[in-house]
Design a protein around this nucleic acid. Structure first.
Lengths: 189, 189
DNA sequence: CAGTGTGCCTTACTTCGTAAAGGCGACCGC
DNA sequence: GCGGTCGCCTTTACGAAGTAAGGCACACTG
């Protein structure tokens, strides 16, 4: 019979970690409650005690996890440097978990993601950019789109997925080029 | 008993149309074979005669449908005008079916989508842009990301979806601003 | 040592995707 | 006209998924 008490107790963090691992290694389609339970050495229903709304809550949590990056502006940089730092951090976080990219691009930001967005806005304003709203949206759009294209190009979503890392050298170069272009264009006239 | 022969015969096009309608009005989650069959007044299994690989084929077809836009360059425009036309057309096509956006951003381009990409590349080259590859990727990234952000912002994915159109005036303005910025930055040095 | 509560399991129901096979109508050559 | 055959749709059935309801066991309290 299965162990009544699991080796190590369940927790929201452990659940989300395991879910990320499954989504990244086998795809979102294969992330099921039962498989997640197996990975955690627990019955599927146990998850519902830690994520009351079940799979919806899990999906939200995954999206939030790859979308709630924070950046600490070191000294007193110019706003384009702040913007660059945020863009790179956001890109890195998304590329780290290509399996949940569809969620990150699709679900409206909530909780920590919203806070991160607000922080970014404030930092840009403090760094000298007036009216940071449109800039934040443009940056988000560019970063999300870049990662989407990169992941597509890397062949990550292929059926026989030998590719396990969505990062490519070409993607990196393209990203920086486009980012430069965008930042130039975002400068107040 | 149900009609043996459906009122109007099934076809790949009718299936895809109905699927788009369901995905846009109720979300991808609710697009199931049985529901799709109901919408077409047919049993679910009938769909498999027109889409042999079942739901996977359906998803591929939906992604391709919103991703295979073509643009006819009227006269002999400069390459930024060609790029703008492609970007606007792609954005419009994606915004028309927000329900399948996740697929379009996630599935690697195939078939007609690849051909569209190749055409875009050729048109840009003919219009005077050397090395159009990176430009095409940057444009795709920007367009996809913009639409993703727009759809998120419009609240389309909300549980109680009263919003049925993902287009917003603000999105339009933001899009054109960022597009201008990107095109400036894409000019050969 | 009984009492209480939290954390996990068991069972069961609905819905999903789809394999397999059957049936019905239309069209063919004769 | 008539049996044959083929294309399109239905029927039936099975495994897997999400999750509601309730039960049981351990770790604390007092």
């Amino acid at each position: 019979m299965p162990a009544k008490r699991p080796p190590v107790p369940l927790s929201r963090e452990r659940i989300i970690d395991a879910a990320l691992h499954i989504a990244d290694s086998q795809g979102l389609r294969r992330l099921t409650m039962r498989r997640l339970g197996d990975a955690l050495e627990v019955e599927a229903m146990a998850i519902y005690h830690h994520l009351p709304r079940g799979k919806e809550a899990l999906m939200d949590a995954l999206a939030e996890h790859v979308t709630s990056v924070r950046v600490d502006p070191g000294g007193l940089p110019a706003w384009p440097d702040v913007a660059r730092a945020w863009a790179r951090a956001a890109r890195a976080a998304l590329l780290e978990h290509p399996g949940v990219l569809a969620l990150a691009l699709t679900k409206p930001p909530k909780g920590a993601s919203l806070i991160a967005l607000r922080d970014q806005s404030e930092q840009l304003a403090e760094a000298g950019l007036p009216d940071p709203g449109p800039a934040v949206r443009a940056l988000r759009a560019y970063v999300h789109g870049s990662v989407a294209v990169e992941v597509q190009q890397s062949g990550w979503a292929d059926p026989d997925a030998t590719v396990r890392d969505a990062r490519t050298a070409e993607g990196e170069v393209d990203f920086e080029h486009g980012l430069d272009a965008l930042l130039i264009g975002l400068s107040p006239k």
